[in-house]
Write a protein that binds this DNA or RNA. Structure first.
Lengths: 147, 147
DNA sequence: AAAATAACTAACTAAAACAATAGGTTTACT
DNA sequence: AGTAAACCTATTGTTTTAGTTAGTTATTTT
């Protein structure tokens, strides 16, 4: 029941671009170094993000990635769904064991409530929200904050 | 990012006891048959639930399991945490890659919000709530409902 | 034009988690 | 004594995870 590294690294990487570039192109290598993530593994993550049109890529020397939209228009939900799937804690197909599709199992009530609560959180946090939160905490907190 | 069969089967089994016994002892075999789950696998689930004192066991012939408390005093959260762990989508230890314990990563904001939303849902649904929901749906719906 | 850079792709691999199965032992009822 | 059922431990096959490896392709820099 855990978020995998794809989702965790992906969110970190997207935040890294949003925070460290001012609209500039950022290479996977530089993100991987800052975030201490395997470069080739992170390339796979970006390949997925690009196919979902959340980032744009520029090939060749001095190439890299750039956000496909402003941080205020990119939600955590978009990023995590792209990398992790539908974000449902229980899939519809797994809900009913031996119970046919037309029939319902009362446990769905629980899974639906959990799923909805997750969707509600991730769809209402944008990259901009996180950047604002970051700057707020950085100023008001005694401990160091990182992206 | 999925709930495993332990949690899914466990919740189904607990509801099964709550619905099909009126305070009576229920054998794993009968639950396994009704719910179409492997009996020996379900035994492992009940072993965990018993150690967490959510159910009581009676050994020997005609033995079985019984809820350790009334359905109104058993939450979905108790059951799922026992079988799945802490129900956190991201563990504290996994949050900071290369970032020491005293330092903070802004992504925690997201994980904390998701974790809290899950806890809030599961801790506020009791077995009794589910039984009530079951009876309500059973009467008002055209499709069959199962535990 | 050549070299360098960086995205892009596919195939592979080690390790862990998952979902059981198997084969017993112990306890209590009939 | 026989049986039913909880209880316990080990093993197994499969899938997922988290990368690694080894390249190809496109663009810029020298």
């Amino acid at each position: 029941m855990k978020m995998s590294t794809k989702g965790r690294y992906g969110l970190r990487a997207m935040l890294d671009i949003a925070a460290n570039s001012r609209g500039d192109i950022v290479s996977v290598k530089s993100i991987a170094e800052r975030q201490n993530i395997s470069e080739s593994y992170l390339e796979q993550v970006f390949s997925t993000l690009r196919k979902a049109a959340i980032v744009k890529s520029i090939k060749g020397a001095q190439g890299g990635y750039i956000l496909a939209d402003t941080p205020s228009n990119i939600t955590v939900g978009q990023i995590l769904r792209t990398l992790e799937g539908n974000l449902n804690i229980v899939d519809i197909d797994d809900r009913d064991n031996g119970v046919s599709r037309e029939e319902k199992c009362i446990n769905e009530y629980v899974w639906n409530r959990i799923n909805e609560s997750i969707h509600k959180v991730v769809d209402n946090i944008t990259l901009e929200d996180l950047l604002n939160e970051y700057h707020k905490l950085k100023e008001n907190s005694s401990v160091m904050y990182y992206i």
